[in-house]
Simulated assay, not measured.
Amino acid sequence: MSAFLLTINIVGLDGGRSLPAAGHLKVLRLDTLCILGPPTSPSRQPDVSENLTMTVTLPTVLLWVVMVTDCGIAPLNNGETRIVGGEDAPAGSWPWQASLHIGSTLCGGSLISNQWVLSAAQCFPSDSDVTVYLGRNVQQGENSNEVSRSVSRVIKHLEYDDKTKENDVALLELDSPVKFTDYIRPVCLAAERSFFVDGLSCWISGWGDVQTDGVVLPPPQQLQQVSVPIVSNIQCNAAYGSITPSMICAGPSITGKGFCQKDFGGPLVTLNGSRWVQAGVASFATGCGYPKFPGVFTRVSRYQSWISEHVGENQLGFITVFSSSSQASPISILSVVLSVLVSLRPSSL
């Protein structure tokens, strides 16, 4: 089996001596591996015989090591783009967005492979029939790029707690695979050890209500999108008192930006390089876009093993993402990088 050596040189802002952090990474799918630097760096496809060296200047987005299928690519989204306080999303902006119809209930979801959708466990309190729409832009009117699928099985996390919303995650297996188009594509998933810094820009999308008192989207009920920053679990817990490490929060401290009823199960994504990575699954919030109450999401990276166990990791695009801010300590960031490299090193090459 082929392998290569990845060497990371962490360089301080003072231009001082590089700190080498060498690790070995066993590559199973070299044809789909990308090494991405800071967001301004283009992705590149390494030759299988290369020994790769990356130099990273702190602070920045540190590193992506991507072993994926063709996930997280939105050809029709230029990256500049009414969930509460949001705006209309042009068709194809979020090609993994799924509209889940469970009886009379509407939830969101995300396509993670050609036959699996990720959503929230709370959306499936019973064994009701589920229809999944992909490539959909409006709930009322024609969707020329849409396909629909029935669901052959729903897998809810066995330890889901409906009261606390702990482990609010579910997988839906479609009754037949879908063909990828510019309007229907899978999202990448945040892998274990991913780190999302407070203030990191993310996006949420859905067809949910536009006000807390049940005001629905006006016709034609076009998919809505809104940009929200990550909020630290410490700050989020100050608002709710029940935030766990399996949750991640996002939302500004101003009114009018957040998710609402019927958005549950939808994706929280962030753009790294040229790929979109799902960091969270919409779970709960106090009100809809209330100030000082961020939206709470199931933290996807905590469920890599659970998702892979049911779907099969070869079908998925897990990405380990590290993000930092100008306030981050280079030593603390370096320790994270080193710990991940250790975790990636196989027992033998």
Score class of each variant (00 low, 15 high):
P220E: 08
P229I: 07
A22F: 06
I112W: 08
A238F: 05
L334N: 06
F322G: 01
L338V: 15
G241W: 06
W207T: 11
M67Q: 14
V132D: 02
T32W: 07
T244C: 00
G258C: 04
E159G: 04
Q225T: 14
N137A: 10
R345H: 13
V277L: 08
P219A: 14
P177V: 09
V65F: 13
G141S: 03
G199I: 01
C188W: 05
L172S: 05
L338E: 15
V65N: 05
F259V: 08
V296N: 06
N114G: 01
Y240N: 04
P229G: 08
S253N: 15
G214A: 06
G103M: 05
G208N: 03
L76S: 01
P229C: 09
I331T: 14
V336W: 13
N272T: 10
A191S: 15
R44V: 13
L134N: 07
I102R: 05
E142Q: 14
G206N: 11
E313W: 02
S148T: 11
S301W: 02
G37S: 06
L341S: 07
D209S: 12
L62G: 01
V336E: 12
Q115H: 11
V269H: 03
L36W: 04
S274H: 12
A121G: 02
A89L: 05
I83S: 12
R275C: 05
S329V: 02
P330T: 08
S2T: 12
R29M: 01
A170D: 02
V336G: 10
E146F: 03
N114Q: 14
W276A: 03
K26P: 04
L189E: 07
A190G: 14
V154D: 03
G289M: 04
V169L: 15
C71L: 06
I184H: 06
D175F: 04
S113T: 15
A3W: 09
R44M: 11
N77P: 01
Q261H: 13
G287V: 09
R193D: 11
D127F: 03
G79P: 04
V277K: 07
A89T: 06
S113A: 14
W94V: 07
N272G: 08
S104P: 11
A191N: 08
Q221N: 10
V231K: 12
G317R: 00
L341N: 08
R153C: 02
P291H: 05
R149K: 15
F180N: 00
S152M: 08
P125C: 08
S152F: 01
R193Y: 10
I83H: 02
D129E: 14
G256T: 02
A21L: 15
L19T: 14
N114R: 13
A22K: 15
S242V: 11
L171F: 09
T60W: 04
L334D: 01
S49Q: 10
L33Y: 03
